[in-house]
């Protein structure tokens, strides 16, 4: 049963991250996703200090705010102070992460978070933290519920805003011309990324979030030219990685989050080498038609 819960958690994280990651890599913002996943740390710590519990809702709010703040700061440094964009990202997230670590050290006695957990989480503990109703009925692990709700939110966000998200990612000029606010959808997307990051944070840590945000969409990007196919494919790749990763971790007795990230990397490598349309070992022999 434990294996089921862990794999379910991993798959939920993988689905949310892969979906949003598709938009991030097409907008060339993969590293902004990386930055957000680190920078939400102070938000989590502050929410924790204010409420004194690991309750999910305040943490989601705190980290969601921090995520938007990160995006805003990066934009601000880049646009108004003219810091080059990669440096703006680097300065912002290391700064916020450092503040988070310092907050943890200052309130070490009160904050039940440790640095390792921040970086690579502990998905293996997911089944231990059960949600038990007042009647004593066990509803399954708390994290699964949080993640489930976040997944539904992300899914409906993508379905409802599909056209706007698609347009602002591929043709911001046209989107603006027909009256779709590019900055509104940009910030909505970033809020969604922050929410996902925080919801996944406790179970899988900051780095796996990045692996799942970037690797499955990048793999799917090598396999298809159709955006809808890319979305579906990357979710499938993410879920496969979650399942395989779990068994890999059990086999060599290591971190499950690390193993899932490893598998996403292997998936990418396979696609990079053998993708029917773009693999470097395949495409050499074929003459590629010009694609429009």
């Amino acid at each position: 049963m434990n294996a089921f819960w862990i794999i379910l958690t991993g798959s939920l994280v993988a689905s949310c991250c892969s979906l949003l990651g598709c938009y991030l890599i097409l907008r060339r913002m993969a590293m902004v996703g990386d930055a957000i996943s680190h920078a939400v740390l102070p938000g989590i710590v502050i929410a924790f200090l204010l409420t004194g519990s690991r309750d999910s809702v305040p943490m989601l709010i705190g980290a969601g705010l921090l995520g938007v703040l990160t995006t805003f700061l990066i934009e601000f440094f880049h646009r108004y102070a003219r810091v080059q964009s990669d440096a703006a990202i680097g300065v912002t997230f290391t700064w916020l992460f450092a503040i988070g670590i310092i907050l943890i050290s200052v309130f070490a006695g009160q904050v039940d978070l440790d640095q390792d957990c921040v970086l690579y989480g502990e998905i293996a503990y997911v089944p231990l933290d059960l949600w038990i109703t007042e009647g004593g009925l066990s509803m399954g692990p708390r994290t699964v519920w949080t993640l489930g709700i976040v997944t539904i939110l992300i899914l409906s966000f993508i379905i409802i805003g599909y056209k706007e998200l698609f347009l602002t990612a591929f043709d911001p000029g046209y989107a603006a011309a027909i009256g779709v606010s590019t900055s509104l959808w940009y910030y909505l997307l970033m809020t969604a990324v922050s929410l996902t990051t925080v919801a996944s944070f406790e179970s899988v840590g900051a780095i796996l979030v990045v692996a799942l945000l970037v690797a499955p969409p990048a793999t799917a990007y090598l396999l298809t030219d159709n955006f809808k196919t890319m979305l579906i494919l990357s979710v499938m790749l993410g879920v496969v990685a979650a399942i395989t990763g779990y068994y890999l971790a059990v086999w060599i007795d290591g971190s499950i989050a690390g193993a899932i990230a490893t598998v996403t990397g292997i998936e990418f490598m396979l696609a990079f080498l053998f993708s029917p349309s773009r693999g470097i070992l395949i495409s050499k022999k074929l003459i590629q038609p010009v694609q429009h």
Partner: peptide, 24 residues
């Protein structure tokens, strides 16, 4: 490949780190 630099950086960063954590 047609992978852009930011994606490649994010990919290499997280996968290498994941492998590292797994080994550690």
């Amino acid at each position: 490949s047609r992978i852009k630099e930011d994606t490649a950086i994010g990919l290499v960063l997280s996968v290498f780190f994941g492998v590292g954590i797994l080994l550690l």
